[in-house]
Each structure stands twice: as C-alpha cells, then as structure tokens.
C-alpha cells in the first residue's frame, strides 16, 4: 500500500478529530500516530493553522493525573478540536446548558480547584443545595458527572473530569471567580 500524501493526511486528521467515534471526542496520541505516521505532530500543527481561521484549535491534554500514573493507570495525551476563543453569554444556549446550570458548574469547579481538585460529593451537593435546593443539586451533580466535567471516585469523592481538562481554562476560571463582585441580593441567598 502506498503512503498517503501529506494533504490526504491533513484531511484524515481533520476527520479523525472532528467526527465523534466513541464516548469521548477526539483521539488518543498513539491512535493518531498509527493513523498519520511518525510526523503526526507536524500534521496536527498544520491542521491547527487551518482551523485558526474559524476560531478553532487542535488541543492536546493529559487524560490521567500524574499521581494516578504512579498507581499504574494508563496515561497518554488525547487530542481534539475545540473553540479557540470563548462564547458570549448570548450564545451560551448553543452549549445546551442553562445559565443557572453553568453557574452551578462554575461553582462546583471553583470548589474542587480550591481544594486541590477533590471534594466530598455530599459537601458539594450541600453547598449547591443552599442556592438551588437539595434535589436539583443532586441531579445537577449527576449531570456534570455524565457529561464528564467531574468524576466520582469509589469513596464518594468528586474530582475534575476529562471534559474539564479539555474545555476549561482553570486559571482563567479561578481568576474570574476571585474577581467576581458579590451581588446585592447575595446576603439573602446565602446563610
């Protein structure tokens, strides 16, 4: 079989990264290497240049934490295509999340990050429940887990999920949260 030409590899990379195959979007690094050859990083770099025009980017992230690798969990980078910029609040509906659910997500991620990436589920639900009610906080946490923003460990601890690593700039989020001014009605909303 003849080696595909470079433009063909570029098209193949776009197909592999844009079309959803399994539960998670994108492809693992070793899969890309097998599909695109040794120069897969060059192909991805050129694809990234093309996507820039559309405010998209090829993004690679480490799926597994360093600490988990030490415990024998298989690591490796996953590459996917994501929005390079951010979305204005008017277009938030395109994400499929309501504004108040996005706020709850920001709150949950903020709480997890401030506690070095982990917190007890009961505690997160209690904190969310203060503003949203007990039932809604429970279903929201389930929904965040389903979507991959957070993950639940066997001992009832919540940690950051793969989608957070792929989509969220945690430094920017924490900075925004810290700079957020408290609202006037906040005193009534919080105990």
């Amino acid at each position: 079989m003849t080696e595909p030409t470079y433009p063909e590899k570029l098209k193949r990379a776009a197909r592999l990264l844009l079309f959803k195959r399994g539960r998670k979007p994108g492809m693992k690094e070793w899969e890309l290497k097998a599909a695109l050859g040794k120069r897969y990083l060059d192909v991805l770099k050129d694809l990234n240049e093309l996507l820039k025009e559309l405010d998209l980017e090829v993004y690679g992230f480490e799926e597994v934490e360093e600490s988990s690798k030490l415990e024998g969990v298989e690591g490796g980078r996953r590459f996917l295509v994501r929005l390079k910029g951010t979305m204005p609040i008017k277009e938030a509906k395109l994400l499929g999340w309501r504004i108040d659910n996005l706020a709850a997500l920001a709150f949950t991620l903020g709480m997890l990050v401030s506690r070095q990436g982990k917190a007890e589920r009961v505690e997160v639900e209690r904190a969310l429940g203060e503003k949203l009610g007990r039932w809604r906080s429970m279903t929201l946490v389930d929904s965040m887990i389903r979507n991959g923003y957070i993950a639940e460990e066997e001992d009832g601890m919540l940690c950051l999920g793969w989608r957070t690593k792929a989509e969220v700039d945690l430094k920017a989020l924490m900075t925004s949260l810290i700079l957020t001014a408290p609202t006037q009605d906040s005193g009534e909303q919080t105990r």
């Binding site: 609040i89 706020a103 989509e167 969220v168 430094k171 949260l177």
Partner: peptide, 23 residues
C-alpha cells in the same frame, strides 16, 4: 466568595474560561 456571587456572574466566569469541544 463564590457563594456570594450572582448566577449571571458565575455563568459569565464559566463562559470566560470555557472552550467547548467540537463534536
């Protein structure tokens, strides 16, 4: 700090740091 923030501010903070995946 985040408990005292309003829903809109929290949502805006989330959107400022969110780069949704294209699928």
């Amino acid at each position: 700090k985040i408990m005292r923030a309003g829903v809109k501010d929290l949502a805006q903070a989330m959107l400022n740091s969110l780069h949704p995946v294209v699928e």
